[in-house]
Simulated scan of single mutants.
Amino acid sequence: MKLILTQQVSGLGEPGDVIEVRNGYGRNYLVPRGFAIRWTRGAEKEIDSIKKARSAREIATVEHAKEVADQLRGLRVTLRTRTGSGGRLFGAVTAADIATAVRAANGPDLDRRRIEIGNPIKTVGTHRVSVRLHSEVSAPLDITVAEA
């Protein structure tokens, strides 16, 4: 099945890339979740607009990505949220919450789709997430979750 990616998918490609995947993976996972659209001649014209939008918000060079990674390494990010008994959160910390907390800590402006949370963050404490800044550069980020 031939698809056009609308978002970055680890191991497949960047937005605007035309990829070939198995029918079930495309039909049951990529298309319903909005990660890709079916390739047609009409959709081929959308590739330019997807790539323009990507270049507007993307970190262009590896050097720039390494600079942002250095900023993230020295950053202390604290996220205050409501908790229940035993330090459990009401819900979980999302990538959008982390991006907002990084901005509040005078860090770089991050795209929430580039923040990878391994296990859901549902407890108070320090947690490590990964930020994909470039296809070659990924930076770890420590988040401290505290009671509000």
Rank of each mutant, 00 (worst) to 15 (best):
W39C: 11
D109H: 10
L12P: 08
I50V: 08
R76C: 05
A60N: 07
V18Y: 07
L30T: 03
S10Y: 08
L79S: 01
Y29D: 09
R38V: 15
T81I: 11
I117K: 01
L89I: 12
G11E: 11
G42F: 06
R73G: 07
D70T: 13
T81L: 07
Y29K: 10
V77Y: 02
R80Q: 13
R103D: 06
A36Y: 07
E147H: 08
T6A: 03
T83E: 09
T83F: 04
D97V: 07
A92D: 04
P108I: 11
L110G: 02
W39E: 12
G16I: 05
T81C: 12
K122F: 02
L133V: 10
G118N: 10
K45M: 15
G24N: 11
E46C: 09
E44M: 15
G91Y: 06
I47G: 04
E58V: 10
Y29L: 14
R114C: 13
V9D: 01
R82T: 11
P15S: 06
A139V: 02
P15Y: 04
M1T: 05
R41Y: 12
I98E: 00
T61M: 12
T100S: 13
V21G: 02
V62H: 04
I47C: 11
R22G: 15
V77H: 02
I19K: 09
P108D: 11
V145E: 01
M1R: 05
L30F: 10
T6Y: 02
D70M: 13
W39M: 13
L72K: 00
T144P: 00
